[in-house]
């Protein structure tokens, strides 16, 4: 077997750019999907039936579609049906955000529901409004409870961003695959790609473990 590892350092710049795009996708997706997840969770608990129903439809749709399908859908269907054409990066961001918003909304919903009614009543009895009770009392507690789940979602998302490589986003996976097909250095590039994903992913998984330990079980 003839291996030539020099392709890896030679591609370092491109791989670093790819890794940055992967990290950017992960961070931006979570920055969108966390507040949107809280929003959708609240809509699902709305007293207005149609609102709750639509929110439920959204969650059940995007939670149960493979991400790669949503990515393709956003890339090929969205421009035709809605006349919106984003750059591949934005398209990937939309697809990942839809999927993660659905997941996060379920996470937050169970977190919010796990805070017992008496907490809200204690806040109301002080004279707070429902909105204040939710914001000051329920949400901060729910937040701590769901943090471990969010950490796990984050780690999964980091790896799942590789799925957007199918629409040429220029993330780490796409970049490595490009170099592979141009240089025919298959083993070298796949190994390098695995190493980079692992080196970036491992600390995140460790942080997630730490969050699990710190916030996992209370009360």
């Amino acid at each position: 077997m003839n291996l030539d590892w020099s392709i890896v350092p030679a591609s370092a710049g491109a791989l670093a750019r790819g890794a940055l795009i992967t990290i950017a996708l992960t961070v931006l997706t979570m920055m969108i999907a966390v507040p949107c997840g809280i929003g959708v969770a609240m809509l699902r608990e709305s007293r207005l039936r149609p609102v709750a129903f639509l929110a439920t439809c959204f969650v059940e749709l995007f939670r149960n579609l493979p991400i790669i399908l949503v990515v393709y859908w956003a890339f090929y269907v969205m421009p035709v049906v809605f006349g919106i054409a984003f750059s591949p990066f934005l398209t990937g961001l939309v697809a990942l955000s839809l999927n993660n918003t659905a997941y996060n909304s379920e996470t937050f919903r169970s977190g919010i529901k796990s805070i017992r009614r008496g907490q809200t009543e204690a806040a109301l009895a002080l004279g707070m409004s429902e909105a204040q009770a939710f914001r000051k009392i329920v949400l901060p507690q729910a937040w701590r409870r769901v943090l471990p789940v969010l950490a796990t979602t984050w780690v999964t998302l980091f790896k799942d961003t590789s799925l957007v490589s199918v629409i040429a986003v220029g993330d780490l996976a796409h970049t490595a695959m490009q170099i592979r097909s141009q240089s025919f250095r298959v083993i070298e590039m796949l190994t390098a790609m695995a190493a980079i994903y692992w080196l970036l992913g491992y600390p995140q998984a460790k942080i997630a473990d730490w969050i699990h330990k710190k916030f996992g079980v209370t009360e």
Partner: peptide, 24 residues
């Protein structure tokens, strides 16, 4: 009306069986 109810609640204190202190 919610706003008026809040005004009334401000003038009454309530203590619960399970304390319901805010744990955070």
């Amino acid at each position: 009306e919610p706003a008026a109810i809040r005004k009334v609640r401000q003038r009454m204190g309530m203590v619960f069986q399970n304390f319901e202190l805010f744990p955070h």
